[in-house]
């Protein structure tokens, strides 16, 4: 386990090509590895390092700074409950206690069947819909205990697979720059002059 697959290597090269420096692709490639394996493996970090020209220690140095990257398996569904002020004012603490009780794990824990990991999260930019949570980064708003029950039931029964992919996949659609339309990366050393459209004339 687990270097990037052939398909992912192709995509990785496309992504690297968009940036003036390959290293800028590091976070996108870490997401790709996490999507492939569900978490970030050592082999993936070595491979990403090879692709962007860094050591695996440098890749780990970057990756370990970011909370979304996991270095060991987590549940299929990562349930992040917001505990920041607006949610706290609207009962997030009670919701967290309820969730711990319902799933039988503490915050940070994973259920024995590997289905759910529970985490305390900070502001999710949905403060008017408090208390809120995300399941694999998909929102649920103004969540009551009953809502939480049905969410867990639906996820357990596989009723939400169309809406919520397994942990690792964040966006299901990515950018594709058509070859004939893209300008390509503009590294610092490639340009010294002002862009052509700064010629004092209207472009259109």
């Amino acid at each position: 386990m687990s270097r990037l697959s052939e398909g992912n290597i192709r995509l990785a090269k496309e992504i690297i090509g968009r940036y003036p420096r390959p290293r800028s692709a590091m976070i996108p490639l870490l997401h790709m590895a996490q999507q492939q394996d569900g978490y970030i493996t050592n082999d993936a970090m070595v491979h990403i390092g090879e692709l962007v020209g860094s050591t695996s220690a440098e890749v780990y140095g970057t990756a370990s700074f970011y909370e979304m990257f996991k270095f060991e398996p987590v549940g299929k569904y990562l349930v992040n409950i917001c505990g920041t002020l607006s949610c706290a004012l609207m009962g997030s603490e009670e919701l967290m206690h309820y969730a711990e009780h319902k799933l039988g794990v503490k915050m940070g824990g994973t259920t024995d069947d590997g289905m759910f990991t529970l985490e305390h999260a900070e502001c999710q930019a949905a403060c008017t819909e408090a208390p809120c949570l995300q399941v694999n980064y998909r929102y649920r708003f103004r969540v009551t205990a009953a809502d939480f029950d049905s969410l867990i039931d639906d996820l357990s029964a596989g009723r939400l697979v169309d809406e919520i992919p397994a942990h690792g996949t964040v966006a299901r659609v990515g950018q594709h720059i058509p070859r004939d339309r893209g300008v390509g990366a503009i590294p610092p050393e490639s340009v010294t002059e002002a862009p052509v459209w700064l010629d004092g004339k209207a472009a259109l």
Binding site: F69, Q175, H176, P178, R181, G182, W197, A203, L204
Partner: peptide, 26 residues
């Protein structure tokens, strides 16, 4: 991009720029 609003020669002019989608990790 497909409609010609981003990338090379935007709206047929000599204005060309790429917009690259980047995303963080928390």
């Amino acid at each position: 991009y497909a409609a010609g609003y981003i990338g090379k020669n935007i709206l047929g002019t000599h204005f060309s720029v790429d917009i690259v989608l980047h995303w963080g990790a928390g």
